[in-house]
Design a protein around this nucleic acid. Structure first.
Lengths: 342, 342
DNA sequence: CTGTTAGCGCATTCAT
DNA sequence: ATGAATGCGCTAACAG
């Protein structure tokens, strides 16, 4: 009695099933069943239990529950960055897919660093997740082995250009590059520039670049100018690099960008410098971000389906919780958005 | 021996401390200590253990560890949205603050719904987090009570306009509204418009609006025009509502926006409609997003310090892990950015 | 420096 | 429909 009172007043001492059981005059397992709506419970019992739960302010300890049931209901998510808007968009899709499933996503960020990714994956696996959703297909051997040997479902999202460990959900970035080249050639452009990512960490940007080059080559053309920069993609870099490209190589009639934000920067440069778009210079992006559609003239680009990618990645796991023998590949596709800048 | 071999080949059967201990010929606790670098371990022992760890591909089970140590090392984070760029920016600050601390953030999204927030907080608390960082100060009574009674550190971030449960990190949004009004009056504007958020869920946008109105009133002015829309803030809505405002109330000389993205939309409208900025119409935003600085003319706005807010929120908890008796309030401030649109 | 002994809070048999 | 017993995998005293 004294102890009971102490419990109620001491905010830090955790209330456990046993406390609830004692107050409700039932056994621990009845409380446990009631909380999870598992099995049959008499209405009277349920009410007694829930009354005690409310009276004590009981919050079940999921850590203990997970250990006992050997099922964490955690979904690990690994992304390279939060500052590139596409990843929050994918997270939204993941959240949407997870809603109502009583699962908790745990997100880790790698900063495009494969060694950090290895670390992050090791830490994530320590939480015994039921699945891991990870951006991209490029990992260290150790990371790949850890993921593989975990035995849980591993969904690599964003790209489907490489064979997955278990499942891949996304689009072909090489194909997107090729499609860009073909589209621009078909539109009559002849002198091509590229402004974008010049590092090595963003593998998908590089694949699109390679696709672009090979698409141009197939049409008998080539890149006439190129201005790249390292690090995170941004409007500012797009603006600056477009200026560089224009001053270094006049005569280019269209610029393909590694992403929409770079392309928006390009448009801002043109607006400021009095360059008419697309008459003097045409611009073509990648991603299909909202902002591109709201510009004074809508940005011509390729729409990737980020939200859907997140959603589908979750579905792969929800629909087939145990890893199948053969890899799963889901192509979420892409569409060319005509716009008014190319 | 046969069992050992089975273990190694069966990818799904978990390797435990005991397996490692057996192979390394030491006790379970020695393995545990070695893994955590806790206490003194002979070099020879450490090597034996780590050898066994590698041989077996052992990954410690943090669920079990947390239960045993009664310390989850989880930091719960609650935000209203992922589609508003400011929240991913805060998450970056949180991540930065958490780096190297061996703690895992668990993020939940409420969609600006207080009932959903209540749900989300209950679920989060079930993971026994060491702290909860939650956006805003507006919660249901039940949410507030749960957070309070958890006894752990609760950091409400974004705003410091309301008294916190435990700690608040952010800026005064009312003050930002007032500052906007004063700044625009000082710049000589006399006919004021507002374009922005017209719902009730985004409490901070409303506080800025109220600050704006009272700041104008203090100067002897008032809002002459207003065009608002519900739901998530966006460039598109800013563009559309600016068009509405211009057509409904000619003669306004400056528009204050509820956020930078709305203001960017406003600028896009002006660019498309041939309205000179700031001569015909001046624009003033809120947030200080990167994109604002890269526009053909830099957006005049108020810089909030999102990244810093996230970082400081984490620091509050890291520096003072146990809740003090008196509330903590940390003002991360804001600065007016002159820009070229107002 | 290392081993032994007890739980952490809960979910799950298996009885009844 | 409910209870009792057992253990999930690990950490934390405590001994030595």
């Amino acid at each position: 009695m004294a102890k009971q009172r102490q419990r109620l007043s001491d905010r830090k001492s955790k209330v456990t099933v046993s406390d609830v059981a004692r107050l409700a005059q039932v056994s621990d397992s009845t409380v446990s069943r009631t909380m999870r709506n598992h099995g049959l419970i008499a209405d009277a019992t349920r009410e007694k239990v829930m009354g005690a739960v409310r009276a004590l302010g009981y919050v079940p300890n999921r850590i203990a529950g997970s250990l006992a049931s050997l099922d964490s209901r955690i979904v690990g998510v690994v992304i390279p960055s939060l500052s590139n808007i596409v990843f929050p968009e994918i997270l939204q899709g993941i959240n949407a897919g997870l809603v109502g499933t009583n699962r908790q996503s745990v997100i880790s960020v790698t900063d495009y660093d494969l060694d950090k990714e290895e670390d992050v994956v090791r830490n994530l696996l320590a939480w015994q997740p039921a699945a891991v959703l990870i951006a991209g297909s490029t990992h260290t051997d150790v990371t790949r082995r850890m993921l593989d040997q975990s035995g849980i479902r591993i969904v690599e999202f964003m790209e489907i250009d490489h064979p997955p460990i278990d499942a891949a959900v996304g689009m072909s970035h090489v194909a997107a590059g090729v499609a860009t080249a073909r589209h621009l050639i078909a539109r009559g452009y002849r002198r091509f520039g590229y402004v974008g990512y010049g590092g090595t960490a963003d593998v998908r940007a590089l694949m699109r670049y390679e696709g672009l080059c090979s698409g141009l080559a197939q049409g008998g053309f080539r890149l006439d100018a190129k201005a790249v920069s390292d690090g995170q993609t941004s409007v500012g870099k797009g603006k600056a690099q477009t200026a560089v490209l224009c001053s270094q190589t006049p005569g280019v009639d269209v610029v393909a960008y590694s992403s929409d934000d770079m392309a928006v920067g390009g448009l801002f440069h043109c607006l400021g410098a009095g360059i008419r778009v697309p008459e003097d210079l045409a611009l073509f992006g990648f991603n299909g971000l909202d902002i591109g559609r709201e510009l004074p003239q809508p940005l011509s680009t390729i729409r990737s389906n980020r939200f859907v990618i997140g959603q589908r990645a979750v579905e792969v796991f929800l629909n087939t919780p145990v890893r199948p023998d053969t890899p799963t590949i889901i192509d979420t596709g892409f569409e060319i958005f005509e716009g008014a800048t190319a």
